[in-house]
Each structure stands twice: as C-alpha cells, then as structure tokens.
C-alpha cells in the first residue's frame, strides 16, 4: 500500500550530489513530493529531506540505492508517525481586505499567522505547520483575494534519532567497530528468518 514516507539522507556537501540522488527517483518514474536540503548539527554533513508517496518495499530499495552513492553517509525512511515535521508558507493578501474585513483578521489570528511585511497594497503572512493546516488557510483565504502563495518543502526530525555526531565517528574510523550495525534495518527485518 502506498503511503507518505519521509526519507532523510545524510551526505557530504558535494556539488552534483543532488542530481545523483534525484535521478534515483526519476529513473524509476517516482515523483518527489517535496525536497529540502539543509545543514545538520555536524559541521560538514548535509541532509536531504525527501517526501514521496510509495510502498514501503519500494522506499526501502530506494534508500539502499541512495546509500550506495559514494558521498551518502546514511539514508533513513520513516512514516509520518515516526517523525516531527513542519512546512512553512507565505501568503500575500491585499491590505485593504484585511483592514476592512474583521473576519480575515480573525481567521489569521486563529491560524496563528504572523505578519512578515506590510505595504500599502498588500500584506505578507507566514504560517508553519502540517500540510493540511497550510492548505486549510489557503482555502479560507481564497475567497478574500489571495494574491500569491508559496509553501516550503517539508523539514522533519526523526523522533528516535540521536543525531549524527556519534554515527559520523563510526564512519570516520578506518576499521568499523564490531558493534557497528551497518544497515540497521536488518535488525528490524524479522522476516529474514522466515522458514
């Protein structure tokens, strides 16, 4: 069954790597719903957050193909209940509509929208949250002459992640430690011994 998965990829910061990762999806004609690149808590390590809608089997294979790339340190995939995630959006609305209509003001207040810029002709608001919350506000604002809208990619933190500092140490050591579990899904894969 297809569902939303968030793939977190820890990488070196290397030109061309975005393409190398992207073509793993495009080659298989898989649409990327959202993609974000970001620094991490570790100085030299970068992270990609990719959202796709696929079956777990496909996502697992994709992660292995991603991890196979030389400059990729690690790729994880998670369902939505295993992560904390946010998206951010900006909305441009005519200033006079907000000034005149108390309803709009209330709506923005209820949705926790913050003003980023006010001009005579328009005002820009910002919200962050899950996709549904953002989409809800667009819908509501549409009837009040929403001029422009933009949403960011998803950023996500894996709930049980301990960060990448310790992991990186393992990668840096020439000889991997005995207890290093290279591909931890093996441990979760209870189907392995299916006799």
């Amino acid at each position: 069954m297809k569902q939303e998965f968030t793939i977190t990829v820890y990488t070196e910061n290397q030109i061309g790597l975005l393409n190398r990762i992207a073509i793993i999806f495009t080659r298989r004609k898989i649409n990327i719903d959202s993609l974000n690149t970001s620094p991490t808590e570790v100085d030299t390590v970068h992270r990609f957050t990719i959202v796709i809608n696929e079956t777990e089997d496909v996502v697992r294979k994709l992660c292995r193909q991603i991890e196979k790339q030389v400059e990729v340190l690690k790729a994880y995939y998670n369902t939505n209940d295993e992560i904390i995630w946010q998206e951010m959006a900006l909305y441009k609305v005519p200033t006079d509509v907000i000034a005149e209509k108390a309803k709009v003001e209330r709506l923005l207040r209820e949705r926790g929208a913050r003003v980023v810029a006010i001009r005579q002709d328009y005002t820009v608001f910002e919200t962050s949250g899950h996709r549904e919350e953002i989409e809800g506000l667009i819908k509501a604002l549409e009837q009040y002459s929403l001029i422009e809208f933009v949403r960011t990619a998803r950023i996500a933190i894996i709930k049980d992640s301990k960060g990448f500092h310790a992991k990186l140490k393992e990668f840096e050591s020439e000889q991997p430690a005995e207890e290093l579990v290279e591909n931890e899904f093996l441990n979760q894969q209870d189907k392995v011994f299916s006799m």
Binding site: R60, R64, E67, N183, V192, F193, S194, M195
Partner: peptide, 17 residues
C-alpha cells in the same frame, strides 16, 4: 557485496552481505 542487490529482484531468506 552490494547491499542494494539483496531483495532487489528476488527476496532473500538469508542475506549474506
């Protein structure tokens, strides 16, 4: 030797990487 090959086409009962 390539972990990406395991289970790619045929599901392994026991993978020996």
């Amino acid at each position: 030797i390539d972990p990406a090959e395991i289970d790619k086409n045929v599901k392994a009962t026991v993978p020996v990487w």
